[in-house]
Design a protein around this nucleic acid. Structure first.
Lengths: 214, 214
DNA sequence: ATATTATTACCGACCGGTCGGTCATGTAAA
DNA sequence: TTTACATGACCGACCGGTCGGTAATAATAT
């Protein structure tokens, strides 16, 4: 009566994983379904038992990635009350995350960005919403900065702008690392990066750079 | 004897411009030749009178963009001897450049990055070489930082790492601006950005952030 | 002036390859 | 034998690039 039973969820993950590999190597647009199938060691048709379309695989990969990241960040933030320490942890976690799965994340991130950029704001794209993710991220960091300012630890910078710049710098560094892993690797620049970025928060100098020189 | 004569170069530029528009809206992969033709107000076949392939248009756009940027930067750097001022100018120019042609540059940059990332290091891609461009950029900035340190104006940071981070931050901010022009626009964050990034260079504090807290 | 003609510029129907997605035909477990 | 699962040959939409034909221009001939 009961037939062959396989773990559907496990197979779905397998396919997503294979897709991530192919996506990161070729880019989503150039990744063929047959490539994904081969990478997963299954037939092309089988993919369609688990996903409706290539788009759906892409969405699944996207969501998996960010919910994972989100969990890690929230876990880590429990560890300390010190705002500076929190920022250091966020930066560390974010940078380290990019090395996950042999840097697969990296290549695909490009396509997430591309997709995010070209998504019209009005259209509610119910699956992928990179903008929303960025907003959460921004809120998280600006909240910490505000906390630091209130506690008198940080200089009174604009928390939102600072958050935006922190995220920007992280993304950009990420981009550099993807592009030139030999020249710029995480271990080398992580500390300098953290120092450079956060120095401005502690530096109490009254005369600003722009005001001083211009 | 003499036939219809038109300005081939002008038309080439027209096509590149139209292509840039379409590329930035749809992405290079999804941009159809017919879209480019329509945007340029010409027939599809005509494009092939001026370019061999879509790839060639992409390359042309890429080169035009960066040689333009390069010229602007070199011009501006003549204006001052002060290292801090030089850095401020570089940041300003780079950020402003992204608003050129109604932000068209922005969308296409995504594809340049994607292309750059997926270009194998070994293969000499004779037309597009984003990595080389980044190297020049990095050299330029690290040179200025080195200058500043020698003159005793800057703290003794690692010039190369600082250059990498500056470029990273610029790229990342750029990415943010593309994604959320309403929230993060250049005029709003330019100053905070410059302040935040360059603060670390002047701040003479001996105890480092990482050393102090960890 | 006006017609002729050589040459260039332009065009879009068409071709051929590609690839996402389907489905008829399996196969293996129970 | 039944039923879930797997597959790859096949289909057809799509799109980059081609090509034969047409329009525009200007030198030349009338």
């Amino acid at each position: 009566m009961s037939p062959k039973i396989i773990d559907k969820d496990a197979k779905k993950k397998l396919i997503v994983q294979a897709a991530m590999q192919v996506f990161s190597q070729k880019g989503v647009a150039k990744a063929k379904m047959i490539d994904i199938a081969k990478a997963a060691g299954i037939g092309k048709g089988t993919i369609y038992e688990y996903f409706r379309s290539k788009e759906e695989i892409f969405n699944e990969a996207f969501n998996a990635m960010f919910s994972d990241m989100d969990t890690m960040l929230n876990d880590v933030l429990q560890d300390t009350e010190d705002p500076m320490q929190k920022l250091i942890l966020i930066i560390g976690i974010t940078l380290d995350y990019h090395e996950k799965d042999g840097g697969e994340f990296a290549g695909v991130m490009m396509d997430f960005w591309a997709e995010g950029i070209r998504t019209k704001n009005e259209e509610v794209l119910n699956t992928i919403n990179l903008k929303q993710i960025y907003e959460q991220y921004r809120t998280m960091i600006s909240q910490i900065v505000r906390e630091g300012i209130e506690k008198g630890i940080f200089k009174a910078v604009d928390p939102t702008a600072f958050a935006a710049i922190t995220i920007a710098a992280l993304d950009g560094l990420f981009l550099q690392i993807i592009m030139e892993p030999n020249i710029i690797n995480i271990k080398n620049v992580k500390d300098t990066f953290t120092e450079t970025l956060l120095a401005g928060l502690l530096c109490k100098k009254e005369d600003t750079i722009l005001g001083g020189t211009k």
